[in-house]
């Protein structure tokens, strides 16, 4: 990961929070780990190594004040409505206990989502144009990669797991975009200076929420509302409904919850291990530690690369599996017709 660069970068940031003094590289050993792990969260500005790129806009909504948009955090302070608390939280200026109802600020993670989106859209747009021009030519380069992903998702993820072929083809774009979106966000965390957007619960929860809607929306559309409600009984006799229905409803929500936590924890855990390994060097202040930490963190980095692909795949395939389960055997007949 960003290793030393992040280290010194974050050091500068933390020490000079608010005061904007540019360098102070000495931090006490006990501060090393909190500072390093602080890079994992969201930030209100984008930094690349030592360079401060941009302050991100702050968008706040409050029942009392309505919508407020500031171009950066300083502007927000100048407005006098909100201030930063001692724990770097945005609070109301007149009531220091209260935070705004909704903080819709563009954070570094949102920026990295946008980055992933833009790159993917450009790639897909270019590939799509090539396909429109000459659909019968064998694919080349970037087009080949996208087609491989597309065919992989279609043949190995969607079609084997979703029993209805029609629904599978309708959901295919969703699964493709889910996979590439998560994959690119995961990979951005491995580029020095990047942030892992999937390493925050907000992102993964948002994706899992779409998965929840896709799973149940598809099920209702395929088997009808009545059958879907019957599924809630879990196949038990009707008089057991007061046990089964709560359980089934809970299981309805645990699936997306498990997706959320799995992706988040996988992406975060690797980064925590990496940062801790690098942090050990600064904590112990010896170069001997580097001899141990560097090879091991290279190994961890390779593992992270694997995990980035694996978790994107797992999120996608589990969503597909859950969708298939939610549709259940009710569409068996349509399945048989296709064969």
């Amino acid at each position: 990961m960003e290793a030393e660069a992040v280290m010194s970068n974050e050091v500068g940031q933390h020490e000079a929070q608010g005061a904007h003094s540019t360098h102070s590289t000495e931090i006490p050993p006990q501060e090393v780990f909190p500072v390093l792990l602080g890079t994992l969260g969201e930030h209100r500005e984008l930094n690349f190594f030592h360079y401060h790129i941009v302050d991100l806009p702050v968008i706040l909504y409050d029942k009392e004040y309505g919508f407020d948009i500031y171009s950066n955090i300083e502007k927000m302070k100048e407005s006098g409505k909100y201030v930063l608390s001692t724990t770097h939280k945005i609070v109301k200026a007149n009531k220091p206990e209260e935070t705004p109802t909704l903080d819709l600020s563009v954070t570094s993670l949102v920026c990295f989502q946008w980055l992933a989106m833009i790159i993917l859209l450009v790639a897909f747009f270019r590939a799509g144009r090539k396909y429109k021009k000459q659909p019968l030519k064998p694919p080349k380069g970037l087009q080949n990669v996208l087609e491989a992903i597309f065919v992989f998702i279609r043949d190995d993820v969607v079609l084997p797991n979703i029993p209805s072929r029609k629904a599978a083809y309708r959901l295919l774009p969703y699964f493709v975009s889910l996979f590439v979106f998560i994959l690119l966000m995961n990979l951005f965390g491995l580029i020095p200076g990047g942030h892992t957007a999937t390493g925050a619960l907000g992102t993964t929860a948002g994706l899992a929420l779409t998965a929840l809607f896709v799973i149940n929306g598809t099920a209702i559309r395929q088997i009808g509302l009545k059958n879907w409600l019957k599924h809630l009984l879990g196949g038990a006799p009707w008089y057991l409904f007061f046990i089964m229905v709560p359980i089934e409803i809970i299981s309805l929500f645990t699936k997306p919850f498990a997706l959320t936590v799995r992706l988040f924890a996988n992406m975060t855990a690797g980064h925590v291990v990496l940062l801790s390994l690098v942090g050990l060097i600064f904590y112990l202040k010896t170069f001997v530690m580097a001899a141990v930490a560097v090879p091991f963190s290279v190994f961890m980095y390779a593992l992270e690369l694997l995990v980035a692909f694996l978790q994107a795949f797992i999120f996608t395939i589990l969503t597909a599996v859950f969708t298939g389960l939610a549709i259940g055997e009710h569409s068996e007949h349509s399945h048989q017709i296709e064969h």
């Binding site: 619960l201 907000g202 948002g206």
Partner: peptide
């Protein structure tokens, strides 16, 4: 902040994804 679910980020994610 790592274990906080930031609703703003969640809304942004859903919006971006859609």
């Amino acid at each position: 902040s790592l274990l906080n679910v930031n609703p703003g980020l969640m809304i942004w994610t859903i919006l971006n994804f859609l």
